[in-house]
């Protein structure tokens, strides 16, 4: 399937990127599929943030396991 993604407008002057402008459908309304998430600006960015979050969690759990793998 085709996944429509709207990328945030990256500011060229070094300021924080702004959320993407909503995409309008033929009838002038914001397309339901393009409604942005409440944080991270776009859906692909939010998904990437979740992957980073998961990697961080697993790393922390691994460090936890190592810290308490007591042999001596």
């Amino acid at each position: 399937m085709r996944q429509k993604s709207s990328h945030g407008n990256k500011a060229r002057d070094g300021k924080m990127p702004t959320p993407p402008a909503p995409v309008h459908s033929a009838n002038g309304l914001v397309s339901e599929e393009d409604e942005p998430p409440p944080f991270c600006g776009t859906w692909p960015r939010l998904y990437a943030a979740i992957v980073v979050y998961l990697a961080t969690l697993i790393t922390l759990f691994y460090l936890f396991t190592r810290a308490y793998r007591i042999t001596e």
Partner: peptide, 15 residues
């Protein structure tokens, strides 16, 4: 946590 770790109960990740 120390005792649980010694007893192998904190084995959260196995690579």
């Amino acid at each position: 946590l120390y005792l649980a770790g010694v007893s192998g109960r904190l084995n959260a990740v196995d690579l």
